[in-house]
Nucleic acid binder design. Structure first.
Length: 585
DNA sequence: GCCGTTTTCGGCCCGACTGTTTTCAGTCG
């Protein structure tokens, strides 16, 4: 069993223990262990073999024993026994807003609810409202929650949240009542998928701002409405929360509401270690009479007072950033202004919406120096993939356009998004690929397969001296399809070895390679290309979010090909693959 | 269930809001 499958089981164990009314810190211990596994960079098998599992924080003897059993046998008696103790359908009930472990347990013991269907039935019969601690309103809320389970998938791509948040944020910023307003939470941290939008503002008149907020355009329903905190449901189906604080509290609240929860817990612990108490309103001395908060004008000052260098929001996931901030070892993250061009773009020749020329002009408008064209190859029939003849014609056309832009510090690179066949060979013969400047090799079909087979397939493809970039390495589609099972460490090592660039595909539903892998990719010496996989001129903008994901992966300009100047990229692509320099040239 | 140079036992981040209660538990982030 792999680490992600084990993480799912640990999470489930946590949920069941929670429902059984176990000590909540025991529950948290399992949830933390699951999260640690999901983010684990090192190979789990190796850690187990070298008996180093205990070195991981939060992995005590009991959890170690369970992880090892699951890894080696895929079975765990403790888990099987636990599953017998409650109906499995109860876990689903925890996804309904207003229902936590205590209430779910009551529904089960008092009303024999064992599934969402059962719960709907009991609500419709009015039985839930009669239960102690419940009431009419709770029953209504539950019914509504059940309806939403079906309507909304509960998670959204980052860009959907960003677009939903903008009109409200603009309204708040324009209001004379509001001093400052910002989006916090996972949207600010640039998580690839988000659950809700957290807005924060500084004001002296919170109640008036709350009224403004709940009446904002796009608000479909008011969920909560308090003096300093309100929640609404937007037309997009995304829940949006707003918190109001005053000017002095703002930096503390911004840090608090940016999270992540795990990052905050570490910050609070650091405060305690220094005889302080940290919350969303300030940083307070604990000893003696109640005192005023220490003053901080910016988040930077707050971090400094906790003995840390400033940590960019994207890095606040408790995956090593605190230790790095202690010693000043944080990387200087890539920014949008560092980007000088991109690769992997489609045109009307295959399944794109805009012409070669329009794509080039759009890239120039962004101030870029180059754009790599990579239309589909012939096997991608549905995407109108190019055959050899059409590809050669496109190369010629690109040459003509480059003549027109000569001397203007801009050019197109001729390329192809060539399909990787099931055996790892490519959709075009080498003599055709050799005529291209930038070849993106992507797997589009046969994503099932077992890990060893998939890994061999990808490694064979990138070992081809004509392949410049490995496109969307896993082929995952966020919120709908798992990616290929791959031995990622082996793929990344092979990429570094063969001098193949690895793509960070920033289509909102892909964000592939995942940010969690980039730290180890960089360690292996891999060079990244942030590519939009644009099928229209407007989609070139996807690189903005790609930069956000790159920042989550701790990437610096030196580790990204498309921060290089045109002349440097030309030199890189012209050189024989084995002679290319992946590190800073 | 995990953790520890103030601790091997007794902690484990902290506050707003709701709905149900007559002062607070549960949920949420």
């Amino acid at each position: 069993m792999d680490k992600n499958e084990i993480a799912v089981i640990l999470n489930e164990i946590g949920a069941i223990l929670d429902l059984l009314g176990e000590n909540r810190f025991k529950v948290i211990a399992y949830q933390n262990a699951a999260r640690t596994l999901e983010n684990l960079q090192e190979d789990l098998g190796q850690l187990i073999q070298q008996e180093r599992l205990g070195e991981i924080r939060g992995f005590g003897p009991h959890i170690q024993e369970k992880v090892v059993a699951l890894y080696k046998t895929g079975k765990l008696r403790y888990y099987d026994e636990l599953k017998k103790s409650i109906p499995v359908g109860l876990i689903d009930l925890l996804r309904i807003p207003s229902l936590g472990p205590k209430k779910v347990r009551m529904l089960w013991t008092d009303l024999q609810v064992e599934s969402v269907e059962d719960l709907k039935d009991r609500c419709e019969k009015g039985l839930v409202a009669k239960l102690g601690g419940f009431g009419e309103k709770t029953q209504e809320k539950i019914l509504e929650g059940i309806g939403n389970l079906a309507t909304y998938r509960g998670y959204f791509f980052w860009i959907e949240a960003w677009n939903s948040a903008q009109p409200i944020l603009e309204l708040l910023k324009k209001s004379p009542l509001v001093d400052k307003a910002e989006v916090g939470g996972s949207v600010r941290r640039k998580k690839e998928v988000i659950r809700d939008i957290d807005l924060l503002c500084s004001t002296e008149k919170p109640e008036a701002v709350m009224k403004l907020f709940i009446g904002s355009p796009g608000v479909q329903k008011v969920i909560n409405h308090g003096e300093t905190k309100s929640s609404v449901m937007l037309g997009s189906g995304i829940q949006c929360d707003l918190r109001c604080v005053n000017k002095d509290q703002y930096p503390f609240a911004l840090t608090y509401f940016t999270g992540s929860k795990e990052h905050n817990i570490v910050l609070r612990q650091r405060a305690i270690d220094r005889g302080l108490k940290l919350n969303e309103y300030g940083l307070f001395p604990v000893k003696g009479a109640p005192q005023k908060s220490l003053k901080c004008n910016e988040e930077e000052e707050l971090y400094r007072k906790l003995g840390l260098h400033y940590i960019e929001p994207e890095m606040r996931e408790d995956t090593g950033e605190i230790a790095a901030a202690e010693t000043g070892a944080l990387p200087h993250l890539v920014a949008w202004k560092d980007i000088r061009g991109t690769f992997h773009c489609h045109t009307t020749a295959s399944d794109g919406a805009d012409t070669l020329e329009a794509m080039g002009e759009a890239a120039r408008k962004l101030g870029w120096e180059y754009l790599g064209i990579a239309d589909h190859s012939k096997s991608s029939v549905i995407a109108n993939g190019l055959d050899e003849k059409r590809l050669l014609a496109q190369i010629k056309q690109i040459g003509e356009l480059n003549q027109r832009w000569k001397g203007q510090n801009f050019r197109l690179f001729a390329g192809s998004e060539v399909d990787v066949m099931i055996n790892g060979s490519l959709d075009f013969p080498d003599e055709i690929l050799a005529q291209l400047e930038c070849v993106v090799a992507s797997v589009h079909s046969g994503l099932g397969g077992d890990e060893a087979k998939n890994t061999a397939r990808v490694i064979k493809a990138i070992s081809n001296p004509c392949v410049t970039i490995l496109g969307h390495p896993t082929g995952r589609l966020l919120l709908s399809r798992e990616g290929m099972k791959l031995d990622m460490n082996a793929v990344l090592e092979a990429a570094a070895e063969t001098k193949t660039v690895v793509e960070l595909n920033c289509t909102p539903s892909r964000m592939d390679l995942d940010w969690r892998h980039w730290k180890s990719a960089t360690r292996a010496g891999v060079l990244c290309a942030i590519n939009p996989d644009a099928h229209a001129t407007a989609e070139l903008e996807q690189v903005r979010m790609g930069v956000g994901i790159a920042r989550k992966g701790w990437l610096t300009p030196a580790t990204i090909l498309n921060t290089r100047k045109l002349a440097e990229v030309e030199k890189f692509l012209r050189a024989p693959k084995s002679k290319r320099i992946l590190g800073k040239p």
